[in-house]
Amino acid sequence: MRAFSDWQTNKPHDERVHDNEQVTTSNKHQVHDNVTKRYAKGREAMKPAVFQYVRPNNLQEALSALRDNADAKLLAGGQSLIPLMNFRLSRPTTLVDISQLKELATISVSEGTVHIGGLVRHQQLHEDEQIREVLPVLSKAAGEVGHWAIRNRGTLGGSLSHADPAAELPAAMVALHATLLLESADSAREVPAEEFFLGFLTTDLQDGEMITSVKIPVPAPNAKYGFAEFARRPGDFALAGAYVELSGEGGTDAVTWFGVSGGPERRELSIAKETSDRAEQFKELAEEFDPVEDPAYRKHLAVVVAEQAYQQARKGQA
């Protein structure tokens, strides 16, 4: 492992105001604005603050480095982290760069389970033949993440640990019953996706842990999935998105939304066949959400994208 540190020890501080009075970040919504909308009040920056750079040669070295550096952050694709660092909204003292660990960038299907490494890039996920065959909805969703250049570098593990509420992949994990493998230097544990996302930019990932892979059960033959989202421009963060799971005769269906609250929102129900009944069902569920901006519109969109995803599922997308 190589570790490069800058010429001065960096004293971390998150002050973004010029006096000692903090910008109000008293509630989650304010934080949401500051982080997802990428603006810093009054303080302009475009170059990252100083950090120590560690490049492990393998997973074990990476996990050791995470354990040994209290404020260390993992650098995978960096497509969410580096913008925040450029704006100096994030100032990790140590970056552990795992982007080159090829062992974590594999996709395999065996015994009814899809295994996806934490460093699989979005474009790789989007183009992978096995994924297209067994989880076409995931392939489609991965193709909607950002733009091509972003997808070429952004990773599954990075997206899941960043847990942006408007991101496609955290919700995909919840919708597809994924289990995340979290490893640290001393332990490993499995967490169902539904339990992993705790709210706005918050996950169950503990200090020292890394998402090394996820496993997703190959859907039952009669299960069908659909996916839809809406953004102002293609490639922008979604204003609302949804996955619909139709389990077939007698089973329980589900809708998993994103972009409408602090994280993925999965609801099980038996989706009505009648259009107007379905609209009522979706509307009732969407009422529970608490979007920050344009709440009425976003709840309305939640219903629209759920219906679109339902139609996709009906067409037998999965």
């Binding site: 990428r38 475009m46 650098l75 913008p83 760069d97 474009q123 091509w148 972003i150």
Partner: peptide, 27 residues
């Protein structure tokens, strides 16, 4: 823009387009 939105800094990394503003040189 230095946040990966505008695409002006796009380069090819192993033949694929990526943002050179969202990668450290050491990487």
């Amino acid at each position: 823009c230095e946040q990966g939105v505008c695409g002006a800094c796009t380069i090819l990394v192993d033949g694929a387009p990526e943002r050179s503003c969202l990668m450290f040189a050491v990487q």
